[in-house]
Simulated scan of single mutants.
Amino acid sequence: MRPVCNIAVELIKSRRAHSSAAALRLRGEMCKELKTKVLRLLPQSCSGPSVHQEGFTDGAEVLSCTVKALKEGHVVAVPTDTIYGLACLTQNSEAVKKIYDIKGRNGNKPLAICVGEIQDIYKFCKVKVKEALLADLLPGPVTLVFERSEVLNTDLNPFTSLVGVRIPDHGFMRRLCQMCAEPLALTSANISSHTSTVEVHEFQELWPKLAVVVDDGPIGDHSRLGSTVVDLSVLGKYRIIRPGCALSSTVDVLEHKYRLSEDSGKNDLV
């Protein structure tokens, strides 16, 4: 006969296992009910293709699922090279409104757009700088502000003639934009005025309002500063709207390589 203490220990372990399994089932049922898919990207391998790991999803499958959600008019959470963001299709007015509602964001604060390639910028922005300047800063942790073109959805930032554009230095995000074949409206994944997020659990209260949450683990340098935002809409000038995480390197490129001078005038994106 086994000692009573051993039986007690086994009973406790059994109850814990049952409780843990029940919690996992409950979480699964909640996600199913809320129709929120939380997908973990496979870690990238330097020596070849990523090997499947428990709990992770193949990048192609994550892309397919995210593109489908975006094209159906939903808002998704995505990783960038700086912080986690909320994204929707720029040209979908209802989806743009959803982002504001989800964040509780002031309707007079603009959303940036995100594209996959430098050439895509010219379709949606009126660019007054050399293409080489764009190539020196993008892809990277910088948002460049230009005059918007007539092609861009008029319901996106209708209060300004300008728009900020990003190409994150993040393979998943660039490929996502390419597959959507149009820009994504992009903003930080947090309730408005709250701290920016570098891990998906930090904005878990928003998950029920999202169709897909793409988990790429901890990202950025944990400074939570977001991208450096610079206005290049005035010929020969630049204006820093937000210092962000790449201020010194950005100013160095603008001033020393391209001889732009700082514009101290006001900007209607501030």
Rank of each mutant, 00 (worst) to 15 (best):
L41T: 00
K37H: 13
R105Q: 13
E29V: 10
L42S: 15
Y100W: 07
C88P: 04
L39T: 02
R40Y: 02
I121S: 01
S188N: 01
Y100A: 13
R15P: 06
S248L: 11
V253N: 13
A211W: 06
Q44P: 07
L111H: 02
I219V: 02
A185I: 00
V151Y: 05
Y238K: 04
L63P: 11
S47H: 12
T197Q: 05
I241Y: 06
A181T: 10
K237C: 02
D155E: 15
W207F: 01
T90I: 06
L206G: 09
A87S: 15
L26C: 12
Y122V: 00
T154C: 11
S188Q: 06
I113A: 01
V4F: 08
V213L: 03
K37L: 09
L34Q: 15
I7F: 05
L89S: 06
L152F: 02
V230I: 04
A95P: 10
C180R: 03
D155H: 13
N267L: 08
P158N: 13
L39R: 03
D120T: 00
V38M: 11
F172G: 01
I191H: 11
C5K: 14
Q204L: 02
R16E: 11
A185L: 01
R148H: 06
S188V: 12
K123D: 10
L162G: 03
R242K: 07
I118A: 03
I102Q: 13
T195K: 15
D268N: 15
E54C: 09
Y122N: 14
H194W: 09
H18F: 12
L184T: 07
A132S: 15
R166G: 04
V145F: 02
I167D: 00
T90Y: 01
D231M: 08
M179P: 05
N267H: 12
I7Y: 13
A211C: 10
L63F: 02
L70Y: 02
V234D: 15
A132W: 05
C180G: 04
A69T: 05
R224L: 09
T82L: 00
V142L: 00
E182S: 02
G265N: 10
R259W: 11
L39E: 01
E150S: 12
E117H: 09
V214I: 05
H52A: 14
K37N: 14
R148F: 06
I167H: 05
S192E: 04
T90D: 04
P243I: 02
N108Y: 06
M179V: 01
Y238S: 08
N108M: 11
N106R: 14
P168N: 05
D252R: 01
K37M: 09
C180W: 01
N267D: 14
N6G: 12
D268C: 07
C5H: 13
E131A: 07
V253R: 08
